[in-house]
């Protein structure tokens, strides 16, 4: 029954226009970035290497598909959560707003089953968005710009990662990015269990992300103790995959914290929905 209900939920997602807004916006954003890089990518590279160009010359294909993919991922991982929550924030509250929640509850499936099927559907939608992001940023960018070594900027300077060492890094980065987006999807589903319309969960999800991100970037010691436990701190964990040496323990820590958030948020959603009065 859970599986059947999950398919129903996926069909519901597929029939809603807002589900395509995310994919469409993602596609459009990536096309704009690709166009910008075709038009003015060299000046972007100049900005990256300018500090060294008086003394050193950089040879080889710096502006390549791998760099574009990295730039796209860096830009969009911040914005994709909004596109995800547009759909996942509507999953439970949308039923309440449309008045279909009681009909849903009459089905031979427990309330836990209803929440789990919606959560699995949200997970699949998030996975599709991540795969689409990966496909556009990696394959299309590589097809347009060719391949090559990757220059990564960080606050201590430049790191050049050989092309042969990139496929697994991008794969792992997308996997961690998916985990971060899955956390956001579960968060908006949790908000959705508390709301009667879909605007509240979407706005609340974005507000939490913005608030936590601001706290995370503030160099104020009073927040130092909570920063490691905020999921937004670990949403950028995929970038750590492009460090050398590769910080395995830090990445595992981020993965565990994100998984813990998903588990706790799902638990809250289940608790709330099971206790929710849907009769009035």
């Amino acid at each position: 029954m859970l599986w059947k209900n999950t398919i129903n939920e996926l069909l519901k997602i597929a029939t809603k226009i807002r589900s395509y807004i995310g994919i469409g916006a993602l596609t459009l954003l990536i096309i704009i970035v690709l166009f910008a890089m075709i038009a003015d990518g060299k000046s972007y590279i100049g900005f990256v290497t300018a500090s060294f160009e008086q003394t050193l010359s950089f040879n080889g294909k710096i502006l390549n598909g791998n760099l574009i993919a990295f730039i796209i991922m860096q830009m969009l991982i911040v914005h994709v959560p909004l596109l995800i929550s547009l759909v996942t924030g509507d999953l439970l509250s949308g039923e309440e707003a449309a008045g279909t929640i009681r009909m849903l509850a009459t089905k031979p499936i427990s309330r836990t089953g209803i929440v789990l099927s919606k959560w699995i559907a949200a997970t699949i939608y998030t996975l599709i968005m991540t795969v689409w992001l990966g496909f556009l940023s990696l394959f299309v960018a590589k097809w347009m710009f060719g391949t090559g070594d990757l220059i990564v900027l960080n606050s201590n300077g430049l790191l050049i990662i050989p092309e042969a060492d990139l496929a697994w890094r991008f794969g792992l980065a997308l996997l961690i990015a998916f985990l971060a987006l899955w956390t956001v999807a579960t968060l908006s589903l949790a908000f959705s269990a508390f709301a009667k319309n879909s605007v509240g969960p979407i706005v609340s999800t974005m507000s939490v992300i913005i608030l936590f991100t601001i706290i995370g970037t503030l160099d104020v010691s009073v927040f130092d103790s909570i920063k490691p436990y905020m999921f937004t701190t670990h949403m950028a964990a995929w970038r750590s995959v492009f460090e050398d040496p590769y910080p395995t323990s830090a990445i595992w820590e981020s993965v565990l914290i994100l998984v813990a958030h998903i588990a706790v948020l799902l638990g809250i959603t289940l608790f709330r929905f099971n206790k929710k009065d849907i009769t009035s």
């Binding site: 160009e53 008086q54 003394t55 050193l56 010359s57 950089f58 040879n59 080889g60 294909k61 710096i62 090559g148 070594d149 220059i151 050049i160 050989p162 092309e163």
Partner: peptide, 12 residues
């Protein structure tokens, strides 16, 4: 001319 498949850093 320097021809390199990867990124090569040389002194100016």
């Amino acid at each position: 001319k320097v021809e390199s498949k990867g990124i090569a850093i040389l002194p100016k």
